[in-house]
């Protein structure tokens, strides 16, 4: 008995030890990023210094410079603007489409389901060139509104696909009961199905938010003025002048630009884990 439990214990320790390299690989870049953003320039560009530690005292000068001398806050605001609008829009469109796919029988439902699945797999880098022309024709060239309308092209298929899985888990009988009691289908959707599918909706919102916040190629292609670009584009293009990299500010920008996602992540980790697998496997 004692020997078996000791063996289990040492196996557990071994598992943790084997995980260490994976964890170092996953986390070290973030550690190094945060560390760099807090170092003085003198220490950053000192080839004799140890890059793994802060030895000459931490400083907030890079953050101060980023927030006061650049348009960083505008970029963050743009990111939030685009992300919130695109997420809301996609969630609404995706919810009704997912409900139709999961529950309703009508002409063309099969073809539409396949269409959604196919667009779900279309990478953004396949269509960004012609899409830039469409955006120009719509008069949205170099405007953050271009991102609000183009992000749903990958968010809607994702939300639809994810929510369809959740809606299918709601028993038909529950809904039919409500309809026998005089509720319409739309009422049944709003009052019965959606409340049961809340975890799915939370998942969809989190992923839509994350995907739009992290989107890069459309943002880089469709917008360029400093007052329209998002955080990812601003940090990677405006903080690099020619070939000169201001590493302190760059890393401060990378840290702050990730903060909204990290906050969501800390609170909703379990949803991220389940949504990741649901999106791929359902």
């Amino acid at each position: 008995m004692a020997r078996a439990s000791r063996r289990r214990r040492s196996e557990k320790v071994a598992s943790h030890l084997l995980l260490v390299p994976f964890l170092v690989f996953a986390l070290f870049p973030f550690y190094h990023m945060a560390l760099t953003s807090l170092k003085t320039d003198r220490e950053l560009y000192d080839r004799a210094a140890v890059p793994l530690l802060i030895q000459q005292g931490p400083t907030l000068e890079h953050y101060v410079k980023l927030l006061w001398d650049t348009a960083f806050l505008t970029w963050i605001k743009n990111s939030l603007f685009v992300t919130l609008l695109a997420t809301t829009l996609s969630l609404v469109i995706g919810t009704v489409a997912a409900y139709a796919l999961a529950r309703l029988r009508f002409v063309g439902v099969g073809a539409f389901g396949t269409g959604i699945f196919v667009t779900y797999l279309v990478p953004t880098s396949l269509l960004f060139l012609p899409l830039a022309q469409v955006v120009n024709w719509l008069g949205l060239g170099d405007s953050k509104w271009a991102l609000v309308i183009t992000y749903p092209t990958f968010l809607v298929p994702f939300c639809t696909w994810l929510l369809m899985g959740y809606f299918r888990t709601v028993p038909r009988e529950v809904e039919e009961c409500a309809m026998v009691d005089g509720a319409t289908r739309v009422q049944a959707l709003l009052r019965i199905v959606l409340p049961i599918a809340v975890p799915g909706l939370v998942c969809a919102v989190l992923f839509a938010f994350t995907l739009s916040w992290n989107e890069f190629i459309y943002a880089l292609t469709f917008t360029s003025s400093s007052d329209q670009i998002t955080a990812s584009v601003g940090v990677t293009s405006e903080l690099i002048r020619g070939d000169i990299y201001y590493w302190g500010s760059l890393m401060a920008g990378a840290v702050l630009g990730s903060v909204p996602i990290v906050i969501l992540y800390v609170f909703f980790l379990d949803y991220y884990v389940s949504g990741l697998t649901a999106g791929a496997l359902k």
Binding site: S232, T236, I261, V273
Partner: peptide, 15 residues
Amino acid sequence: VLLPWVIPTALSTLG
């Protein structure tokens, strides 16, 4: 383990 996947790629790649 999941963290690298959720952080904006453009920013983490900068790191």
